[in-house]
Design a protein around this nucleic acid. Structure first.
Length: 261
DNA sequence: AACGTACCCTGCCGGC
DNA sequence: TGCCGGCAGGGTACGT
């Protein structure tokens, strides 16, 4: 579910709502078959939260006097800020504050808590990520360009939605071998990836259906209205869309046969 | 060694 | 109506 824009939106909401607050209690539901969260989560008790930061699709909780606690939402993980746990299922742990609680819910259990961060590629929204940096990575790969884009070691934060949208905007088919892109195409792709992620952040992430991503306040994003390809049968260009014959990096890959070469 | 694929899970949706 | 297969925005562990 969550790619860079959704994680970034979540981060901003948490920063707004919880920065400077002290964790009153760390709650781990007793009846659960989840592996209990690591000790680093329990240690958050009585700590002041200084900051929430993000690296790729990872969220980092920075508490006073502790190493940052990492959180990856996986496919279905969600943070939910509320007065009580009414209606919430699959709660993995919760941080209680004075007058409300932050719940981490994770139905599919693909989320990760308190794990070491893997090696990431550059942040696509940082000023030093550009066509030259992308070009170097793409030239070194014979994988489909979409697989390279979603490889967190190449660039951190793109998943199926935003990679799909970036390739459409750049006019490049997802199945093209990464090292066959022309300089001009790579330049367009880097620009498109940045633009699509910026738009995703500006619109507060992508909420394709109600069960999916919502921010910790329970609000949906608006990027779904700007989607040109992902989840559609007809592209924003007006052409019928197609999926690649085989999934790429295990993901369904839609593209416009007219607009993407 | 890089690249593809299977797998990890639950929930939802469409087809029969 | 109910069951079943397929699919879902994540990553990782293998096999080749």
């Amino acid at each position: 579910m969550p790619e860079l824009p959704e994680v970034e939106t979540t981060r901003r909401v948490l920063e707004d709502e919880l920065k400077g607050q002290v964790v009153a209690e760390v709650v781990v539901p007793k009846v659960t078959f989840y592996r209990p969260p690591p000790a680093s989560v329990r240690k958050l008790k009585a700590r002041r939260l200084n900051a929430f930061s993000r690296r790729g699709k990872y969220l980092l909780i920075e508490a006073e006097g502790l190493e940052p606690v990492s959180l990856h939402l996986g496919m279905s993980g969600r943070l939910y800020l509320s007065a009580d746990d009414a209606g919430l299922t699959h709660v993995r742990f919760a941080l209680r504050f004075k007058d409300r609680t932050l719940f981490f819910c994770d139905p599919r259990r693909f989320g990760r808590v308190g794990c070491e961060l893997p090696d990431f590629g550059p942040e696509p929204l940082s000023p030093d990520w550009d066509a030259a940096v992308l070009s170097r990575a793409l030239k070194a790969s014979r994988a489909p360009v979409k697989a390279a884009l979603m490889d967190q070691g190449v660039v951190a934060g793109l998943g199926n939605i935003y990679a799909t949208e970036a390739l459409f905007r750049a006019g490049v088919r997802p199945g093209r071998r990464a090292n066959t892109l022309k300089a001009e195409e790579t330049a367009k792709l880097a620009q498109a990836a940045r633009a699509v992620l910026e738009e995703g952040v500006r619109l507060g992430g992508c909420t394709l259906d109600d069960e999916a991503y919502l921010d910790p306040r329970g609000r949906p994003g608006r990027f779904q209205n700007a989607v040109a390809v992902y989840g559609r049968k007809v592209g924003a260009c007006g052409h019928a869309l197609r999926a690649t014959k085989k999934p790429i990096a295990g993901r369904t890959s839609m593209f416009c046969p007219e607009c993407q070469k």
